[in-house]
Simulated scan of single mutants.
Amino acid sequence: MPPLDWATLVGFVGMACIIAAYAYVTGKDKPDPFILHGTNLLGAALLTVSLLVHTNLPSLVLEAFWAAIAIWGLTKAFLARRKAS
């Protein structure tokens, strides 16, 4: 097994963020969309950094969609909060 480099470690942190967000949304009755989508966006960004060093095109495309959906969710949450104010 090759040694772990910085890009792989960054990828593992990103993976942990996405898994934590999934566990969070599964475990909470009313999850906070800012926590959920913010954590997913951070995870996608960290995995993207890793994938730019260790390129895997299908995974890179997946992270682009993951980030786009997280940004969409954050935008909806910001708009809903502004409308409620």
Rank of each mutant, 00 (worst) to 15 (best):
70 A>T: 01
2 P>L: 11
73 G>I: 01
17 C>G: 04
18 I>L: 14
23 A>C: 15
17 C>W: 03
23 A>P: 13
5 D>I: 06
9 L>D: 10
82 R>A: 11
66 W>P: 05
40 N>E: 08
61 V>D: 00
10 V>L: 10
53 V>Q: 09
6 W>L: 14
79 L>C: 06
6 W>I: 15
74 L>H: 00
50 S>N: 12
11 G>S: 08
22 Y>T: 15
57 L>N: 05
10 V>I: 12
64 A>D: 00
11 G>W: 02
28 K>S: 13
57 L>I: 11
20 A>M: 12
40 N>L: 09
33 P>Y: 07
62 L>Q: 06
12 F>G: 11
48 T>R: 01
21 A>H: 06
68 A>F: 02
33 P>C: 07
34 F>M: 13
12 F>L: 14
71 I>V: 07
9 L>M: 12
7 A>L: 03
12 F>T: 10
57 L>V: 12
10 V>M: 07
22 Y>D: 12
3 P>D: 02
37 H>C: 09
43 G>L: 07
20 A>G: 11
61 V>L: 06
29 D>I: 10
62 L>C: 01
35 I>A: 10
70 A>E: 01
78 F>S: 09
36 L>P: 13
10 V>Y: 00
3 P>T: 03
54 H>P: 04
13 V>L: 13
60 L>W: 08
18 I>M: 12
44 A>L: 01
15 M>G: 14
31 P>R: 00
62 L>T: 08
53 V>K: 07
51 L>R: 04
10 V>T: 10
24 Y>W: 06
38 G>T: 04
10 V>H: 00
67 A>L: 00
37 H>W: 12
52 L>N: 06
24 Y>M: 11
44 A>W: 04
47 L>F: 00
29 D>K: 15
19 I>Q: 14
59 S>E: 05
66 W>I: 06
13 V>T: 14
56 N>H: 15
25 V>Y: 04
44 A>P: 13
11 G>Y: 01
40 N>A: 03
22 Y>L: 12
39 T>A: 09
74 L>D: 00
13 V>R: 06
39 T>K: 00
11 G>I: 07
16 A>H: 08
67 A>C: 03
23 A>G: 15
75 T>V: 03
6 W>K: 14
37 H>I: 04
17 C>L: 07
25 V>D: 14
28 K>P: 09
4 L>I: 11
67 A>P: 08
34 F>T: 10
57 L>K: 06
75 T>E: 01
22 Y>W: 13
41 L>C: 03
31 P>G: 00
39 T>Q: 08
80 A>G: 00
25 V>W: 03
37 H>L: 05
24 Y>P: 15
85 S>H: 03
77 A>I: 01
47 L>Q: 10
4 L>V: 15
40 N>C: 05
52 L>F: 07
58 P>L: 06
53 V>S: 07
81 R>W: 01
1 M>P: 14
27 G>K: 08
66 W>S: 03
3 P>F: 09
70 A>R: 02
15 M>E: 09
